[in-house]
Design a protein around this nucleic acid. Structure first.
Lengths: 157, 157
DNA sequence: GTAAAGGTTAAAGTTAAGTTTAAGTCAAGG
DNA sequence: CCTTGACTTAAACTTAACTTTAACCTTTAC
């Protein structure tokens, strides 16, 4: 009634479980004040923050990356349009990057299907190029190749 | 010397740890024969299988999905070009799907940055549309909204 | 012939992003 | 008053995709 929301109300409006919201608070992604008796009260702008978190996750960002982006916003008041714009633009850049990566993979694969791929050494499948790129959360060390590992004698399949 | 590879050799050529290769064998992603003394020997075409697994992971597929795709290949002999082509094409379709999803997100976001986003109800950020879509491995129930959760009274931020 | 390097297993540990459980406090309706 | 539903915490559990550890055997090199 004073404009703030209980955890249950935020949960209902965002579609997240209360446990997830508490987890986000612990991680510092969202902030809450407390009532006398210790219950959380959220400002309405957490709805936007949560929405941002969820969209960023869909794109494959980890909570840690999202935390960094959201650190640009104030936690003690609702961010203004300019502040949100800065965050959204940085987010869109990440998205652009991921789209370019995926398109590169698709191009490589299309060529690979046509080429017969008789040599693993020359096949794009085994030499993705940008070994350092990672697509969001996943196994650790997924693409930690060294030059050694990519090199070596020719191998035919 | 007989054309087969030890686990260490496969590890070196693929850039994966031997432990990961054993793990993949347990999951059925790759197959090995055994020497008298129980050591694994891999046919050279596991290199291509492993390469495929890694590329598919980069795109965000889970090992389970990759398992399904690889199940189309024989494990007792090197797959031929036609067989690899079938698998690669199904993989490319998944990739196309993900690219389309990301592009949709980017379009939405671009509009959102320009629009001022004064109402969360109408803002694309809070109503991504295809709530069922998932981008690869991540938290469970990430996008499990119900109609209820998306609806409700207007909320301004 | 022996030591080092590399192979084997089963079982436990790791990280992310939460969920579930247990045990309890608080608020609202009848 | 008291019960029901919403809230609190800390701690344990979950899943994926591996890695690490421990205890042991085999192969290679000198």
């Amino acid at each position: 009634m004073d404009g703030t929301l209980t955890i249950g109300e935020v949960a209902e409006r965002t579609g997240l479980a209360p446990s997830a919201l508490r987890f986000y608070e612990r991680r510092g992604l969202i902030a809450a004040t407390r009532t006398e008796s210790g219950q959380r009260r959220f400002r309405r702008d957490v709805l936007r923050r949560v929405a941002f978190v969820r969209v960023a996750q869909r794109v494959g960002l980890s909570l840690e990356e999202i935390e960094e982006a959201l650190a640009l916003l104030p936690t003690d008041r609702a961010p203004n349009r300019e502040e949100w714009g800065r965050v959204s633009r940085s987010w869109r850049d990440r998205l652009d990057e991921r789209i370019r990566l995926l398109e590169g993979l698709r191009t490589g694969l299309t060529e690979c299907i046509g080429c017969g791929c008789l040599s693993l050494q020359r096949c794009w499948l085994s030499n993705p190029g940008d070994a350092a790129a990672r697509l969001g959360p996943g196994p650790r060390f997924l693409l930690g190749n060294t030059a050694d590992e990519v090199g070596g004698e020719p191998v035919s399949v």
